[in-house]
Structure formats: C-alpha cells, structure tokens
C-alpha cells in the first residue's frame, strides 16, 4: 500500500478518522508550525514564536505547546484543551497534492496519509457519506486544507519581510515553574513592533497593506499565553 494516496470514494469509503489526541498519533510535540491566516484565532490560546529550523537555520512560524521535547501541554486525557486547533493538527491525516501546472480551475487534489494511526474503520468521523459525497467533517477538513493552501505562501512572504527588515528579535524565556525550579529557554524569537517606525515609508506601507504589521502585533501580544502554558505545566 502506498503511504500517500489520492482521496477516493471507492478506495476509502469506509474509513474513519479518530478524533482523540496523544502520543499514539505523534501529537506529543512541543511546537507546531502555523500560518499567518490563522494567527487571529491562535492568539486566543497559544504563544506564537518564530523558531529556526535546525537543518536550514531559516525561520518558521510556530505555536509553543510545551517547554521540553515531546511535551504537549494542550493535550489532556486524549482531549485538546483549547478553543482553536491549529490547521496543521486539524487537517490530519489529509494533505494537499500538487495540481498539474496547466489546469485552469486551480483545484488541488486531496491526499490521505495511510500510515496515520488516526485512520480506522470503527471510531471517529467518516470521510464519506454513503452516497459518496464528502461528510460534514470532511467538508470542514477541505476548508482547512484550502486555508493552508492560501496561507503557506503568505506565511513565507511574511517571514521574508520580517527577516529582511530586521523585525525579528530573540526572546529569552525565563520560566519559574510551580515547583520552584526555574529555567531559561532559548531559540525563541518574536516580532519587534518598535522597529517598524525605523523602516522606510514604502516598507511600512508595504507591511501594512499585506497585513504584516497586524501579524506582528498578534505574535508579539501572544507571548502572554506562555502563562496559560505554565498554568498546566
């Protein structure tokens, strides 16, 4: 069986997607990549940071979900305790394929990762209705995938803008845990909103029109959510 398959009623009619969270599904991660078009929702629950990719040194946008590797403090007894679930979690186990470059209608095929432990035949949400239409759940996933499709390039442009103009600054997270232990976490970066004023006017205008300045504010404000994380740590 191929790991990544094109989603297809014939082949996947009776599959269900379980809706619990935990180590068994690989959800025990301390950060999750996120997109700029979900920042407004993320800011209610999560601290959002720029984090460097270890292999490339390039910045990515992430929410912090734990203080230590393999720690996800949002998960409790199989449930995800937040109002909003990041797109990169809610979409699973689906992903987008690449459309052939000359298709005019811009439809992007939906793929399913058959290796995902979320896939089964007895519990969770069905992918298809019995008549072959997408289930209500799957319609929602499709919306999520569309948002990823639109959000990914926008996120890249945003990161390029803030890196290029020196609007990223490192954060030293000094954490005092409830048990009295304290630790300083490095490798987290946030948006430096004060530096916006030092930009050339054309760049400020550019940043405002593309929504970048608003994104920066959301990211910078989200640091307060570290307290939420800490309350369950």
């Amino acid at each position: 069986m191929e790991q990544i398959q094109l989603l297809d009623f014939q082949q996947h009619a009776n599959l269900k997607i379980s809706q619990d969270f935990g180590v068994q599904h690989g959800d025990n991660v301390s950060s999750i990549p996120v997109l700029v078009n979900e920042l407004e929702k993320l800011v209610l629950d999560y601290p959002i940071f720029f984090i460097k990719d270890n292999e490339t040194g390039q910045f990515g946008l992430h929410v912090l979900t734990g203080f230590y590797p393999e720690q996800n403090l949002y998960i409790n007894n199989g449930l995800w305790n937040s109002i909003y679930l990041p797109l990169n979690i809610s979409r699973q186990p689906f992903l987008l394929g690449k459309n052939d470059d000359n298709t005019a209608n811009q439809t992007v095929p939906i793929l399913i990762n058959r290796q995902s432990s979320r896939i089964n035949t007895h519990s969770g949400h069905a992918i298809f209705e019995s008549d072959g239409r997408l289930s209500h759940y799957m319609e929602q996933v499709k919306i999520d995938l569309n948002r990823i499709f639109r959000g990914a390039p926008a996120t890249q442009s945003f990161i390029q803008f803030v890196s290029q103009h020196g609007l990223i600054e490192s954060v030293n997270l000094d954490i005092q845990f409830a048990n009295g232990k304290s630790e300083c976490f490095q490798g987290l970066y946030t948006a430096n909103c004060h530096k916006i004023n030092q930009l050339k006017e054309t760049h400020i205008l550019d940043g405002a029109r593309n929504g970048y300045l608003a994104y920066m504010t959301l990211i910078s404000a989200s640091i307060g959510n570290v307290k939420k994380l800490l309350s369950v740590a």
Binding site: K52, E55, T56, G57, Q58, F59, S163, G166, I168, E169, S170, Y189
Partner: peptide, 11 residues
C-alpha cells in the same frame, strides 16, 4: 554549503 544555500540569520 548551507550558508550558500540558506544564509545565516542576523538574529
């Protein structure tokens, strides 16, 4: 090689 491919960040 990575510096050629990706560059270093200023921060």
């Amino acid at each position: 090689n990575k510096i050629h491919q990706f560059g270093l960040q200023t921060v």
